[in-house]
Design a protein around this nucleic acid. Structure first.
Length: 250
DNA sequence: GCATTAACACGTA
DNA sequence: TACGTGTTAATGC
């Protein structure tokens, strides 16, 4: 069934490098750090970049596998997650267009510590660990980008710890949307976040129906505008600081 | 009480 | 037609 769900990564296949192709000139525009490089660096990167089309449910990288690439999202939506010993999935973050991930693992030359799974058909690109380190050794602009990325990611994950403590489902949806709309980490998102309520459910860990209820609540609060197949953020700060109205004191 | 699954009608791409 | 949304009913912790 096309409607079958994929909460578990157990039966999911992993994307093979052999399926990749060279990057197209048009697609280079979706890479936010490219204009920080000089001509020579840019030439090497463009030659090194591989692109692969990932189907929903497929894994881009899997826990425990050795590092091969530093990945970026050209189009689509990915989910960074892990599984507990009991098989319960824990989502760390969503990765919309413009998002890059795996730099921490590439830096330490370790094995991946999380799964990256496609929530919908997505276009993923990446450079080899070798080129990543080569850039790190010579480009100040690239170093700045990576530093910014690590810094923003740290802030995002600190925020995520707070989200976990919030009991309200509405608040979790609000904060997750706030994180997904991050203009620095995910410049490719723009004003409209293309995400279905089902996808958001996988991300936040709620049913589609509950997400639907939360979105309508957030719309009523004038924080977002719900559209077909996506939503528009009206008040980013409002989402980030969203709290439920306490139900009666005393 | 709150969230989940299942099921359905309806609108949109 | 296939997919996404909005809604309701039954069920579970």
């Amino acid at each position: 069934m096309a409607t079958s769900l994929f909460p578990s990564a157990l039966q999911a296949s992993t994307v093979q490098v052999s399926r990749s192709r060279a990057i197209l000139p048009d697609e280079l525009r979706a890479i936010p750090w490219l204009d920080r490089l000089d001509v020579q660096e840019r030439a090497r990167v463009v030659h090194d970049l591989r692109v692969v089309l990932v189907e929903p449910g497929e894994l881009v990288c899997r826990v425990g596998r050795p590092v091969t690439y530093w990945f970026g999202v050209l189009d689509g939506l990915l989910k960074m997650s892990n599984e507990t010993a009991l098989g319960m999935p824990i989502t760390f973050t969503g990765l919309p267009p413009g998002g890059w991930f795996g730099e921490g693992t590439v830096l330490k030359r370790e094995a991946y510590r999380y799964n990256i799974q496609a929530l919908r058909r997505s276009l993923v690109t990446g450079i080899t660990a070798g080129t990543f380190h080569w850039l790190l050794d010579r480009s100040i602009g690239f170093n700045r980008y990576v530093m910014m990325q690590l810094n923003e990611r740290l802030a995002q994950f600190i925020g995520a710890r707070e989200i976990d403590r919030l009991s309200s489902a509405n608040a979790r949806v609000a904060r997750s949307l706030g994180a997904l709309f991050h203009p620095v980490l995910y410049p490719g998102v723009g004003g409209l976040l293309r995400i279905t309520q089902q996808e958001l459910g996988y991300l936040v860990g709620l049913s589609r129906q509950r997400v639907n209820e939360a979105l309508r609540e957030l719309q009523t609060a004038c924080l977002i505008h719900v559209e077909y197949g996506g939503l528009r953020v009206l008040d980013l700060e409002g989402l980030r600081s969203y709290r439920d109205v306490e139900a009666g004191a005393g």
